[in-house]
Structure formats: structure tokens, C-alpha cells
Amino acid sequence: MPLQPALLKTLNLITTVAAITTIVLNRDFIKETYYARSSFLSNADIGLLIPAVTWFLLGGFSLVQWCDFAHDVVVEAIDYNLFISNLAIVSWVLSWRYDWLVVGELLLVLNAVLITRLYSRMRIFTATSILDYAFVHVSFSLYSGLVWLDVFQNFFAAFTTKEGGPMSWAALGAAFAIFILLAIAIYHAEFSRDPDSWSCAAVSLMILSISLEQGSEVPAVQMTGLVSFGWLIGSLARRAIQNVSTWHERANDEYTPDERRGLLG
């Protein structure tokens, strides 16, 4: 049963503020912990920019969700998924505080499932304004691209080290994890019912950040990362060309609008 809209939006607001506050207050702890547990999926500092932008947009969503244009998306698609996801993120930070690494991994898996479910349900809605596009649609597109990366990075930070060297199972496992992220991003960009370039872009930049951090000392991860990044850039370029073609057809009255058109076309 869907929650009463006012209660749902209030829970979204409170838990989003709680999640952002928890991350901000613990940012030094989180950063130091990941540095202390450096793994073959650790990313360069530039990779922190993408999660920061995502959480900024999610913070904006917690406010614009009260606007009329966001009502249907919140009630029919987001439902209870976001506030439970936010609680999972808060709990994940606390789990690392108490060194409950298995619990933390399970919480991030739960978060990824919730955001993926939310994201798939909201793809049937088309943005009606710039605010709607940026804070409702782009925010969750970016977030959906990051959640499974969080799952893999948390796992490798919690349960692996670099002691085995660049050709260890951990290094090869990290390369395989990048391949899985590549498949997820390609699906979002090219094969889903409503292709989405934002999600693909988030994954591609994070993969590039991982490749830059690992460098030539970890050839399996670096090469997999660079090849995956190039592949994703190619997918984004194909999406851009398709968008230009669509806009050209529409301008010449040869295009019939599709009610299920993707957010980025």
C-alpha cells in the first residue's frame, strides 16, 4: 500500500537530510577508512565529485518533491523506496564505525536494489520542466549509476587488500567488477526500454577515476578500466547522434512522440 503522500514526502525530506548530514559529518572518517583499506577498486579523488553532485541533486529533490510536477513520480514511482534507502545509507556509515563490515555490505546491496527498483519505475515519467529534469530525473539517473559501484567498492575495501600483487585474485576480481559495471552502464545507455545517458556517464567517469588511481602498476584494472571507459564514451556518442537525428525529424514533422520516451531521448 502506498503511503499517504504528505507523510511519504516528509519521510523523504527527513531521511535525505539525515543521510546527507551523516555523510558530511563523517566524510573525514569515510575518506580515511577507504585510504586505510586501499583496494584495487579505489578511485582517485576526482571521483568524489560525482557522488557529491548526486547528493546535491538529491537534496534538491527533497525540496522540489513538494511541487505539483513531482507529485505523481513521488507517489507512483519513488514510494517508500527512497526513505528506506536513506536509512540504509545512514546505517551503512554507522556499520563502518563499529566495524560491522558484512552488515555494511548487505546494507549497500539493499540500497542498490531499492534505487534500481525506484529508477525502473520512474522511467515512464517524462520531465516537464528544468527543475523536474534536474532534481527529479537526473538525480536518480546518476544515483542509479553509482549504487552498484558502491556495492563493489565497499566489498573490495572491506574484504580484500593489495598484498597479493597486481595479478592476484583480488586484482583480477576488480577487473571483472569493472566489466560488470560496464555491462550495467551499456544496458542503461543502449538496451533498456528508455535509454539513459546520465547513468552511463556517471559509471564511465567513475571507472576512469578507478583506472587513473590504479595506474600502470595494476595493468588488469587499468586496461579494463580504459577499455570500458572508451566503450562507454562510444555509447554516449551514439546516443547523442540518435538524439540529434530525433530532434531533426521532429523539427521536420516526421517524428511521432512516444509517451514512454526516455529522459534523454
Rank of each mutant, 00 (worst) to 15 (best):
L48G: 13
G60N: 10
L57D: 01
V103I: 10
A134M: 14
E76Y: 10
M122E: 00
R97Q: 14
Y133N: 05
S42G: 12
F69Y: 14
V75T: 09
F155Y: 15
D150H: 06
A44C: 04
D150R: 00
K162F: 04
A77C: 11
V147A: 08
L110Y: 10
G104K: 03
F69I: 13
D79K: 00
F69V: 15
S62P: 15
V103P: 00
A44K: 12
W92Q: 13
I89L: 15
A88N: 08
L114Q: 09
A112Y: 08
W92N: 13
G59E: 14
H71E: 14
L106N: 06
E105P: 00
T54F: 05
N81M: 02
W55R: 05
V75I: 09
V102W: 11
I78V: 12
L118I: 07
F61D: 01
F156G: 01
F83M: 02
V102A: 09
L118A: 04
G164E: 14
V53F: 14
F156M: 10
T161G: 08
G165H: 07
S85H: 08
L82T: 02
T128N: 06
F125W: 07
E163I: 05
V109T: 05
V138T: 06
G164W: 15
Y133C: 03
V103N: 01
F152H: 07
W55P: 02
R117W: 15
A70M: 14
H71P: 03
D45P: 07
L82H: 05
S39R: 02
F159L: 05
S39M: 06
V64C: 03
V147Q: 05
T161L: 08
G145V: 01
T54D: 03
D72L: 11
W148S: 11
V113W: 07
E163R: 09
V73E: 02
